Computed example of a mutant assay.
Amino acid sequence: MEQRKKIAVIVAGGAGTRMGSATPKQFLELAGRPVLYHTIAAFVNAYADMQVVLVVPEAHFGPARQVLEGFAAPPPVTLVKGGETRFHSVKNGLQTVQEKAVVFVHDGVRPLLSAALIHSCYEQALLHGNAIPVTDVKDSLREVNGTGNKAVNREQFRIIQTPQTFLSEQLLPAFELPYDPLFTDEATVVERLGHRIHLVAGEESNIKITRPLDLVIAQALLNG
């Protein structure tokens, strides 16, 4: 299989509002380390040649550098200023990609992804151009509209995770498109250019930490 440069664009722009904390959620402590530390470590431990682009608000550069100082050997991380929206933040991060690569775009507050998932996304992106991790919907769903609601078949839906992973030839041209509020994630941007989106199995433990309960669950998962 072809080998490519590997770049993880980690977007960490949360303010911690839903956490009810003055500390942004990516800097909250999880198992003795900031959440963001675990996220970065997952990527640099998955591949020895992984490069990380960390996209954070300029006001968070100081705390971000403190996170990096927590590593025994400082990983190869480039700090980039975030933008007005996730789209603009990712676009800023992609400005650092100067050659063909497999690019992982990941939420900074998903710290529990495994090396196996990162490997799967990398390998499937090489085969299909992109790889989007998903999990099954386990709850019943209803579609709500202006006149009422109706049951829908949950088998036809999937829950989207990150890292959303792409060949740079797909991802970089897509982010030259004008911003559209309908761009809810990177897959929707790439899809706009006509690329077919390839889904891969995600992980139930790959949770996004947005509320206090999520931090409790993440701690329990780390405890085994």
Rank of each mutant, 00 (worst) to 15 (best):
Y37C: 01
R33A: 02
N45G: 00
R86V: 02
R110M: 12
I197C: 07
R196E: 07
A59V: 08
A64D: 13
P57K: 06
R154W: 10
L177E: 13
E191I: 00
R65I: 00
D136W: 13
Q219N: 01
E203F: 04
H106W: 09
A41R: 15
G32W: 12
V152K: 12
R65L: 03
L215K: 05
L221H: 04
L68C: 04
G146P: 12
G146F: 14
G148A: 01
N206P: 01
L54N: 06
V152G: 08
H106R: 04
V152P: 10
F104V: 00
P24E: 09
I160V: 14
D49T: 00
G32D: 08
A15K: 11
A220L: 07
C121L: 07
N92V: 01
E176C: 09
V152Q: 14
T85Q: 12
K6D: 04
S168Y: 14
L117F: 10
Q219W: 03
T188P: 06
E186D: 09
R18C: 01
N206A: 03
G32Y: 11
V190N: 13
A201K: 14
P181R: 13
V189T: 11
S205L: 02
P133G: 02
V44C: 10
I217D: 06
I160P: 06
R154T: 02
R211F: 09
T162N: 15
L167F: 03
L213P: 01
L28M: 15
L113C: 06
T210E: 15
V134Q: 14
L182C: 08
V190I: 07
S205I: 01
A125N: 11
T188W: 11
Q51A: 03
C121R: 11
V216N: 05
A31W: 12
I159P: 07
E69L: 02
N145A: 04
E69A: 03
L172K: 14
L177G: 04
D136L: 11
T96P: 06
V190P: 12
L79C: 10
Y179K: 09
G32Q: 07
V52L: 07
L172F: 09
N206R: 01
Q51I: 00
E69P: 02
T17G: 04
H195R: 07
D185F: 09
V11E: 13
V190L: 11
P163S: 07
V137H: 11
T210V: 07
V11T: 04
T17R: 15
F61E: 08
I7S: 06
P178I: 01
G224V: 00
Q66N: 06
A116G: 04
S140H: 13
G108E: 09
E186K: 06
P34E: 03
S205E: 14
D107V: 00
D139Y: 11
V90R: 11
K138V: 04
R86L: 10
N149T: 03
D49V: 00
T165C: 11
R142T: 05
S140D: 15
I197N: 09
V189M: 13
R154P: 05
I160M: 13
V56H: 13
Q219T: 00
R192T: 02
A41P: 02
G20V: 03
R196A: 02
T96R: 14
D180M: 10
V102P: 07
T147G: 10
A64L: 12
A8Y: 06
V144I: 15
A42Y: 08
V144E: 15
V44D: 09
V77W: 15
I207A: 04
D214K: 06
E155C: 08
G146D: 15
L113P: 05
